[in-house]
Every structure is written in C-alpha cells, then in structure tokens.
Design a binder for these strands. Structure first.
Lengths: 145, 145
DNA sequence: TCTCGCTGTAACTGTGTCGGTTACACCTAA
DNA sequence: TTAGGTGTAACCGACACAGTTACAGCGAGA
C-alpha cells in the first residue's frame, strides 16, 4: 500500500499554525489550512480533532470560530504528533493465528513483538528529537544549521 | 490501516527453514511452510520469490522440488529481510502536491524527507541487531538470555 | 433574539493494497 | 514418461484512506 500520510498532514497543519501565529493570527479556520495542504477542509478538521484530543490545539465555536495552537512549537516533538494521529504499529503480526502445533507457530509471536517493540522505540526516539519549530525552521530555510 | 504482515511472514518462513535445516531437512516445499504460517502456499511462494531475489534462499524444480536456505541464520539480520520484502517507507508524504504558493507547502517536503530518513535509519539499525537465528532462539526458549 | 460563519460528524464514493484462492503452464529428478 | 512442486496470472473480498457532500449545532456580535 502507499504508506499513509496522516503524520505528514498533521505536521503540516501544526507547522502552518506555528507560522501564522508568529505573524499575529492566532485563530485560523480549517479552510485556510486546507488551502496550504491542498486538500479538503473536512480532512483537516478530522486531523485537528485528533490533535485537539491530544491537547495540542483547541477550537472556538460560533462567529469568528476556528482553531488555535495551545502549545509552544518548540515543545511539540513529532513523536507526540505521531501518537496523536497514528494508531497502527509500524509492523503487523500474522493476520490469522499461526499453527499452534508447530513450535515456530506457537512461539514466534512473542519473539516478534519484542523485536518490533524495540523498533517502535527507536522510531519514537528519532521522531522525538525533532520539534514542530525545527520543521518550521527547516522549511523556511533549508539546510541552514 | 491494518499494518501489513509481510515482514512477519517472511521472518516466520526463514525461521522455520532454519529450524528444519537444523534437523537435517534442507529442501522444503511451500505447502509445508504454509502449514506452519497457516496460510495459502501461493502466499508463501510469493514471499519466497522475493527472498530468492534477495539471495537468501534458492529453489529447485522438477521432482523433489522445493526451497533451500542458502545463508547462515546468524548472518541474516531482520533489516535485510525487510529490505527484501518491503518497498514502502514507514511514513508517506502528501498524496497530492501541497500549495506551492504557500511558504509551508513549498518547503515542507524536503524538511519532512530529512526527518523521515532519520527515522528509517533508526528503524533499520534496530532491525539489524536481530538475526533470524536470534528469533529462532527466542521462539523456542522465550526469555532465556 | 436573530444571523452568520465555522465546526463536528455522518455517510458515501473512488482508489489502492493486501491476503487468499483457483488455475494452469513449466520444469526436472527419478 | 510421469509425478510433484514451482512461477505467475487473474480474480475476489475485506479494508483503509482521502476526498466529498450534507447538515445539525454552536455562539459571538449585531
């Protein structure tokens, strides 16, 4: 399958909010964000809903409604964004139960879970070392370190 | 999405082959492996075909046909198995092109590629530290270290 | 109190992947 | 020559995801 783009969209949303907040606009609409991501506002609202549940943004209703970033971009590591929008593990186990009368089928799943857990942890650490503010900086000034 | 199980199936196949080779059977059929994984022989053959292209197994045709492990289980890290059977990256970029007239849309993809590259490398290193022989050991004797 | 703009969510569609299955031509040791 | 297993195409159903339409709900401000 084409790897899914949920993390990419969520990071794009947050980076965009961090940018315009730096310009004084604090409340933005899903339509404005959708224009930058080049997708449908409902897709953005679905994503923002998950980010809200994770405590990264909040929403205001009524006239002048919209979304607001409620955490400092420096304090949002991508690992937290991933946790907010991604539920599936990187690697899946068997779809069906393997043959329990075979010593491999009976014992391989815990062995794989252990390895996959180490991989998840390594990926989490790698994502943790980059923040939304880092991505914003790199986006606006590529290669400057 | 339900995370795909290609890596799991490929590791199961190789671990099973390592087990039975230790018992003196060197040539095995897709049907025998399918019985342990509890799936269809064609699924196993598709997987074995990719492992063959990667140089991990080879195939014999004709009567008494079947597959043979041609590398030492100790020398096959899971990172190599993943490379053999998995083509998609862990995280995908935007499906459509983001808005190039927005500074974020115009610059975010290289920034994300850099981060995602670091994550891929971290995952690769984590998989590299475990071999097929390690998984076999852990499968047969869980927790013994 | 009414209006207006935007949210929240359900529902549906199109597309793509994946595992599973059938079918069959091909190969070669015995 | 035969028998057993491979290699691969073709098709299916299940499922995830992005995209889209539609509409009820909310509340700041007139």
């Amino acid at each position: 399958m084409a790897a899914n783009s949920r993390l990419t969209v969520a990071v794009h949303v947050l980076v965009w909010m961090a940018l315009v907040r730096g310009r004084g606009r604090d409340v933005v609409t899903s339509e404005q964000i959708a224009d930058s991501v080049n997708t449908n506002p409902v897709v953005i609202r679905r994503c923002l809903g998950e980010l809200r549940r994770a405590g990264l943004v909040d929403v205001r209703h009524g006239a002048g409604a919209g979304w607001r970033l409620i955490r400092e971009p420096e304090s949002i590591p991508l690992s937290e964004v991933r946790r907010a929008v991604e539920t599936e593990p990187l690697f899946g186990l068997h779809r069906g139960e393997p043959n329990q009368r075979c010593p491999i089928g009976a014992g391989i799943r815990p062995a794989l879970e252990q390895v996959y857990g180490e991989v998840e942890e390594a990926a989490r650490r790698a994502l943790e070392s980059t923040s939304i503010a880092d991505v914003l900086r790199e986006t606006l000034a590529p290669g400057e370190r």
